[in-house]
Amino acid sequence: MKTILTTGSNGLLGQKITEKVLAEQRVSLIATSKGPNRYPIVDGYEYAELDILNADQVKYVIEKYRPDAIIHTAAMTNVDTAEANKELCHQLNVDAVQTLLSLCEEKNIQLIHLSTDFVFDGADGPYKEEDAVNPISYYGESKVLAEELLINSNANWAILRTILVYGITNDMSRSNIVLWAKGALEKGLPINVVNDQWRMPTLAEDLAEACILAVEKNAQGIYHVSGKDYMSIADLVRKVADYWVLDQSIISEVSSESLNQTAKRPAKTGFVLDKTIRDLSYNPHSFEEGLKIVDEQMKKVGGPKSGV
């Protein structure tokens, strides 16, 4: 059984990996994140506090646990924050990757790195893995720079690009598109939703499964990992309204330009999933199935918690 170390284990994806490891026992887990462990179960795996910007601490933790693979989920993912604070974004999304990469090269550890559809400009989606990158935001640029570090390294690496991850855990630090839409519609307040951006939303459980499959199959190279359904953001919000029987009359469809966001977003991304399905036996849920899973989990945990 392989041992994996996750960074950012307090985040949505990190917690879903912990949940999956505990349920299925396919790998051993060292979960790491900044600050105390927020996952409600503390038995069955190791937890270590880890600030990915502290190179000495990163080296200490990796040398202590000697994992077979690292799944690197920690990053700055808020696109507007990244645009406004490029220096910190670069530290978190590029410099921290270099720190991990150097250790992985030295100690022959597989590195599974999470990336994004925002490496593309959105002019011609859905995209295949070999399509040319052309980011239009600093967030996207930082993720391209990180990808280039791996591609040009001697490490054993795989890049998993993903899109609009959604889901729920018991203790969340931030929301996601599905929880935001459901919460806003339940409040009954008018909301503006863009109708000129197209995505393939990804259930966090599906992405967690892809991460573990990448370790088990010793995946190498770039893989596209998302949900299977292609839709506009407006359609996504309407599907959320349909599922939970919420009032759609308060949804106003607007253009991206009208929102005056700090960072540009690609218009049409989406992924061709053929390679990931073939090589990793990846089998994503439909968006409808994903909403059902989220709904069932909400009933168990009593609805969204902190930060949502």
Results as ranks from 00 to 15, higher is better:
Glu141Arg: 11
Leu150Asp: 10
Lys128Thr: 05
Ile163Ala: 09
Asp117Thr: 02
Glu141Gly: 06
Ala146Phe: 09
Tyr166Lys: 03
Leu164Phe: 13
Ile177Gln: 13
Pro126Thr: 08
Glu141Gln: 13
Met172Asn: 02
Leu164Cys: 10
Arg174Tyr: 14
Ser137Lys: 03
Leu164Glu: 15
Glu141Met: 12
Trp180Val: 15
Tyr166Gly: 08
Asp121His: 02
Glu141Val: 10
Tyr138Trp: 10
Glu141Thr: 12
Trp180Ile: 15
Val165Lys: 02
Gly140Met: 00
Ala132Asn: 06
Asn176Asp: 09
Phe120Val: 00
Ile151Gln: 09
Ile151Glu: 10
Ala181Asp: 15
Ser175Thr: 15
Phe118Trp: 06
Val119Asp: 00
Ile151Phe: 08
Glu148Trp: 01
Ile168Glu: 06
Glu130Asn: 12
Thr162Ala: 02
Ile136Asn: 02
Glu130His: 13
Ala155Pro: 10
Leu150Glu: 05
Lys182Ala: 14
Arg161Met: 01
Ser142Val: 02
Leu179Asp: 12
Tyr138Gly: 00
Arg161Leu: 01
Phe118Glu: 07
Val133Ser: 05
Gly125Phe: 13
Glu130Trp: 12
Lys143Asn: 03
Pro126Ile: 10
Thr162Pro: 02
Ser173Trp: 11
Ala181Glu: 12
Gly167Ala: 09
Asn134Gly: 11
Tyr127Ala: 03
Tyr138Cys: 02
Gly140Ala: 01
Ala155Asn: 13
Lys143Ser: 04
Asp124His: 15
Asp117Phe: 00
Lys143Thr: 06
Tyr139Asn: 04
Val178Asp: 14
Phe120Ile: 00
Ser153Thr: 11
Val178Leu: 12
Val165Asp: 01
Asn152Leu: 04
Val119His: 00
Ala155Ile: 13
Asn156Tyr: 11
Asn156Met: 13
Met172Leu: 08
Tyr166Ser: 05
Glu141Pro: 05
Glu148Tyr: 02
Tyr139Ile: 03
Leu179Arg: 11
Asp131Ser: 07
Met172Ile: 07
Tyr138His: 07
Gly125Pro: 12
Glu129Lys: 11
Ile168Lys: 03
Arg174Pro: 10
Ser137His: 04
Lys182Gln: 15
Asn156Phe: 13
Thr169Cys: 09
